[in-house]
Simulated assay, not measured.
Amino acid sequence: MSGMQPVPRQIPGLPALDGPAEQVTEVWLANRRLSEHTRSAYRRDVHGWLDWCRERGLDPLGATFLDVNAYARQLEAIPLAATTVARKLSGVSSWYDFLLKLRAVGANPVGGADRPYIDRDHSSTVGLSAEEVDALLERAAAAGERTHAMITVLADLGLRVGELVGLDTGDLGWERGHRTVRFTGKGGRPRRRALTPGAAAALDAYLCVRGGDDGPLFVTSRGGRVDRHAVFRLVRRLAAEAGIADAERLSPHSLRHAFATTARAEGVPLEDVQDAMGHADPRTTRRYDRDRHNLDRDPAYTIAAARVRRAGA
């Protein structure tokens, strides 16, 4: 951005830190294990903050928590959801943490800022019941091999859409008798999951049509990689065809939420669902479980039933 002040430090091995703030951002991103989607989101968030500073003639390296507060209140006035504002500030905070480690700033101004409250027990993602997922899969099966394979993998494994579209044919394999898929999870962590028989069969049927050459697993008619936006549109179209309510508000993430809810309803332990979903914090997994407040699952019933059994012994 023209007019942005250079970072006033010389850091051995990082020549880009002599340039404007945009170059600093690229160095920061290059030093993070991030998916390309997350990298792009962080870049947008930091550039949004830098744009705001530039418009006010403010050197971002001299910004205080008062400036960050003013920025956050402006975002809220657009209005943006509290979760969106919090995410943007998180990206900016990470950028300042990087500069702090390099001693390019004396403090992280986001640290003392008034961040919006986020209800960690709530998610804005529209969920799906197990029956609605079944209906979505039925429509996907009728829409062709590629569509069926993509929706089945999302439904059966609960993958993030970025993980799905990032798959290559070489990521499919076998391990100790299990059909498997390997992928890069959130934070750049390598992960692997077992394919269900249904997902494996759907993928085999799709590969017969696609062909076995290397490259992206899910490809367009022109041979390019299917992007996340196409999957968003696909989920909503299939949901509308299946007569699912709020189809226009659904997303691939709705299937991820349904995965967690159904797994817990079927008695899968929380820690196993957490591991499958790649969550670092079990509270995140609980937030995905839409049925967690169902009174039928109240442990009081289990305790009372055990007391009755003891009394009758």
Score class of each variant (00 low, 15 high):
2 S>A: 15
3 G>N: 15
14 L>D: 06
16 A>H: 09
17 L>A: 08
21 A>E: 07
23 Q>W: 12
25 T>L: 14
29 L>E: 02
31 N>F: 02
32 R>A: 13
32 R>Q: 13
34 L>V: 12
45 D>V: 06
45 D>M: 00
49 W>S: 01
50 L>N: 04
57 G>I: 03
61 L>C: 03
62 G>M: 02
62 G>H: 02
66 L>Y: 08
68 V>S: 05
70 A>C: 05
82 A>T: 11
83 T>I: 05
88 K>D: 04
97 D>C: 07
103 R>A: 13
104 A>N: 04
106 G>N: 04
116 P>Q: 06
129 S>K: 11
133 V>E: 04
140 A>H: 04
148 H>C: 12
148 H>A: 08
148 H>W: 08
156 D>H: 03
168 D>F: 01
179 R>H: 11
184 T>G: 04
184 T>A: 09
185 G>R: 02
187 G>C: 10
188 G>M: 01
191 R>P: 06
202 A>Q: 08
204 D>F: 05
204 D>R: 08
207 L>S: 01
209 V>N: 11
216 P>G: 03
221 S>Q: 15
222 R>C: 10
227 D>E: 09
230 A>D: 08
231 V>I: 02
233 R>G: 03
235 V>K: 14
237 R>A: 12
240 A>T: 14
241 E>Y: 01
241 E>D: 14
242 A>Y: 01
244 I>V: 09
253 H>F: 09
258 A>Q: 06
260 A>W: 02
260 A>G: 07
266 E>V: 02
273 V>A: 03
275 D>S: 12
278 G>L: 09
283 R>Y: 03
284 T>W: 01
287 R>S: 11
296 D>G: 14
296 D>P: 00
301 Y>N: 13
301 Y>W: 15
308 V>Y: 13
312 G>V: 14
312 G>W: 12
